[in-house]
């Protein structure tokens, strides 16, 4: 019995120190990428969503085409593809702009990329992170635009008519009646978009950002070399279970938040929600 306890505490002792070594601390700290990317991605998605929805409803035809085009095209492209395409395309576009000034005509005609070293734009984690946020914003902005567009149309026309009859200006009708009531219809859809966006943060590792997914894969990988830490077999499934639990926890918290928000948006509304 005593031997069991000592071996158990010895076991937990080593396990505990294993869970708090520098590698694991770096893993825990990498949660910040996921949280920040989800937050800024969501803010941008909402912004692009509002812009996209407004463009789609615009009375000016080219805006309408732009809005519909954005929503249809971006919604149809797999987010993984967009995630890889946008940062790379943007990087090359910037390098192209640089090269116009920095490189000679001969260098630009050489077909090398980038044409000269001065036009080289080195992307570190920070730049990739910003571009990941913009990608998330663009992709999920298209979904949000669709949701918001639908929600705008769901606001009873009679309400807006009544508002106009009371002499509210066009702008007041838009902001205080249509947009104000739109949220009730949009929130369930937007919470859905938020969930998708949250899940998509697992793609950050594609841009060589050392996020929770990349660390989990590295920590779980079999190690047979004592100098590189604890010798163990393939433990990836253990680490992926932790990721499951982490994302389920985020889902749970998000649902709680959106329920509160829905309640708040519905207060004082004549609509039965």
């Amino acid at each position: 019995m005593e031997g069991l306890i000592t071996s158990l505490s010895e076991l937990t002792g080593t396990n505990l120190s294993y869970l708090f070594n520098g590698k694991h601390l770096a893993w825990y700290a990498s949660v910040r990428f996921t949280i920040l990317a989800a937050f800024f991605g969501a803010v941008l998605a909402l912004l692009f969503g509002m812009l996209g929805a407004s463009a789609k409803r615009s009375s000016f035809a080219p805006f309408r085409w732009f809005g519909s085009g954005y929503i249809t095209m971006v919604r149809g492209v797999p987010d993984v593809l967009f995630f890889l395409f946008f940062p790379l395309a943007f990087e090359q576009f910037v390098e192209y702009l640089f090269s116009l000034n920095a490189c000679t005509v001969a260098e630009r005609a050489s077909g090398k990329w980038p044409p000269c070293n001065a036009a080289q734009w080195y992307l570190s984690t920070s730049e990739y992170f910003v571009m990941a946020c913009v990608s998330l914003g663009l992709v999920y902005g298209a979904f949000a635009a669709n949701v918001i567009h639908g929600a705008m149309r769901a606001v009873p026309e009679s309400q807006l008519e009544a508002a106009r009859a009371y002499g509210f200006t066009k702008r007041q009708v838009y902001w205080h009646f249509q947009v104000r009531q739109m949220w009730i219809y949009a929130l369930p859809g937007l919470s859905n978009v938020w969930m998708l966006l949250l899940k998509a943060t697992a793609l950050l590792s594609l841009l060589q950002i050392a996020d929770i997914v990349q660390w989990a894969g590295k920590l779980g990988a079999a190690n047979y070399f004592p100098a590189a830490g604890l010798v163990h077999g393939d433990w990836r499934w253990r680490y992926y279970i932790v990721l499951f639990l982490f994302y389920i926890l985020l889902t749970f918290l998000s649902e709680l938040f959106f329920r509160k928000l829905q309640k708040r948006a519905s207060r004082g509304m004549a609509l039965d929600q």
């Binding site: 070594n21 520098g22 590698k23 984690t125 920070s126 990988a221 070399f225 100098a227 590189a228 604890l230």
Partner: peptide, 26 residues
Amino acid sequence: VQSAFAADVRIGTEGAYPPWNFVDDS
């Protein structure tokens, strides 16, 4: 999320190939 540090020379390595290069416990 990552402060930039400009070194003269940057050395690319895999970091997953012990004993040549790997990520240690820290």
